[in-house]
Design a protein around this nucleic acid. Structure first.
Lengths: 340, 340
DNA sequence: GATTTTTTGATTTACGTACATCAAAATTGG
DNA sequence: CCAATTTTGATGTACGTAAATCAAAAAATC
């Protein structure tokens, strides 16, 4: 049986009340006494029973998710997963609120963060826009002891406690190797469709992609990036135009808005052997994978990201350790054979 | 605030004791009264606070893991993950015991299962050997209300509550498509190294592999399967022999014992362009992926499997729902760029 | 209608922790 | 040494549930 506060009190030769004062960092304990208690805690290997403590405190975890107001399948999916988590709130003692901010707008994000610092949630998850102001705001909140995790898009160099998302450089590198290997000895040009180079995850994917292409597949030339703003219409136009170039033998779509890409491919490339790699598994990309329009899909599981963010925020709020391996968000590679 | 037993009692117009009798299916409640309470429970949307209940009961979850006594990296890894879970036991209220049984020995497995039915653990996870006797023993335990999950290797057609492992047919299919696509237009022969065709997961991987090869890559011929018994020495000999055949352009290793495979490849195939796909990420396969001896690794995350099995068994023991998407064990595809 | 049996209520203790109160003891300052 | 202050102990209540006991009420049996 694991030791309880009573055991600590007995071992330290003090009363229950004193143990309680030490455990909950209440004042009125002499230094020597505090040391005695802390020694007993260490020696007996006491760990607070979080379930009992939460019961006694009537504790809930007010959490805030800050998401960009983007109208694409991935963000819709992320939202849906948060709603699922809300349904589990009562069992998990969470109290989850979602705030939408304009996409790619650091100032708006900062103002929301500043507002939250007054509201005292016990944890914040945000899809970070990569800007110095945002970094500063996040660092300030971390210093004020708010648990913070970045979701989907990281804020490197900031003090955030955790990042619940995939390694986008690795994703880009993986895409490049898959494309290169699938194309084999063929020579030609590769079209790259991105959302916006202002978003860190897209930049990183491109960075990884071009690095591996340059190192390992010198026969494949990367064309200038098409920025589709994650909008199906824009993507469609850009890709349809680009396919006028007969030298293109491969396409890497590293953002959202794949609906337009797929339409363009079906209209303009029926007679050509194109190898296509895209990101994010949606109804559209899934269908395209099944009918061979797309050859592979790289994906991040939004459900895992949301659940992981919640687990990590709760653990940080309680000062507990997280199981690192469990919280690592993996890059899923889907071929038509291993779809979920 | 979520309703408590007191609210149920008030709503149903009965005493706390009666609510307790209904909730814990104790006798001495008239049918009509029971109905009243159940209606109140439904109408208020009451769900038992599992944390409080466990505290009151002093409940622990005695769980048993039954593993084959196989001496390969994967089983060692699985064992290590179970030990990690044991370290978390006190926080998770689990009490985990591991039983090793001779590998591929249905009778031994059945006798352990029968013994357990007397011991009353609150959940059992087993790496199933696929045999009718085992299926019958598992079904019997399920009927006796033991929560049971299969781990790594499933027992299809049995009544087990859950399978914590990958879809091995999908894994084989994925391996085939990767190999076929990586080889591109080349024609030649493919060597397949398995552990044993007596194990269901190996059979399924082969089944998926040959199916996709036949459907989609008719220029690639699959050679008779080499059964390496998951033993590095045997695997080494078999592969070294097979590589005498100059027509081999690809290798699929669907079992364990990859150390021998890798040695054989380094000795016999330095001057050849072989495409190699293997299962299970270990120190050896990882190094081989990095130095281009292996082109891709398919993996199942033993840590996820163990944690998932525990979560599911606990949920079943409490009669709670599991988050299906969370418990799905995914097939990891590793290229050298996305290694963890 | 009296007796037995079944059903229900009222109440208590417990789980491990949090938190508050008040009294007692120890320490500090003058 | 006394008074003021700080530190410690003792005790009780609470959280939501489980489980037990005993008395009271209701229903079933004769």
């Amino acid at each position: 049986m694991r030791p309880t506060v009573h055991d600590i009190a007995a071992a330290a030769g003090v009363s229950l009340a004193t143990v309680d004062r030490v455990l909950n960092q209440r004042p009125g304990v002499r230094h020597v006494t505090r040391e005695k208690v802390e020694t007993a805690i260490r020696e007996l290997g006491y760990v607070r029973d979080v379930a009992a403590a939460n019961l006694a405190k009537g504790r809930t975890y007010p959490l805030v998710f800050i998401l960009p107001a983007s109208d694409n399948s991935f963000m819709h999916g992320l939202n849906a997963e948060i709603r699922q988590a809300v349904l589990r709130s009562s069992a998990e003692r969470t109290d989850i609120r979602t705030i939408e901010v304009p996409a790619f707008d650091p100032a708006a994000l900062v103002s929301v963060l500043e507002q939250l610092s007054r509201e005292k949630p016990c944890g914040i998850a945000l899809v970070a826009t990569d800007a110095p102001d945002v970094r500063a705001a996040v660092d300030r909140l971390v210093r004020e002891r708010f648990p913070i995790v970045t979701l989907v898009s990281d804020l490197t160099g900031s003090l955030r406690h955790h990042y619940a998302g995939v390694d986008n450089i690795a994703a880009g590198r993986t895409a490049a190797r898959l494309l290169g290997r699938f194309l084999g000895p063929r020579k030609g040009e590769i079209a790259v469709l991105a959302g916006s180079m202002l978003v860190r995850d897209h930049r990183e994917r491109l960075e990884g992609f071009t690095a591996v292409m340059a190192e390992e597949f010198p026969d494949l030339a990367i064309l200038p990036v098409l920025e589709g703003r994650d909008d199906p219409e824009v993507a469609h136009r850009l890709v349809a135009d680009a396919l006028g170039n007969a030298g293109i033998i491969g396409v890497y779509s590293l953002g959202a808005g794949n609906r337009g890409l797929i339409r363009a491919l079906k209209e303009k490339a029926v007679d050509r052997v194109l190898t296509v790699i895209a990101h994010e598994l949606t109804a559209h990309t899934r269908a395209a994978l099944m009918d061979n329009t797309i050859d592979a899909i790289l994906n991040q599981d939004a459900g895992h990201e949301v659940r992981s963010a919640i687990r990590v925020l709760k653990a940080k709020a309680d000062g507990l350790a997280v199981i690192e391996a469990q919280e690592r968000i993996r890059l899923d590679i889907f071929l038509k054979d291993n779809l979920p």
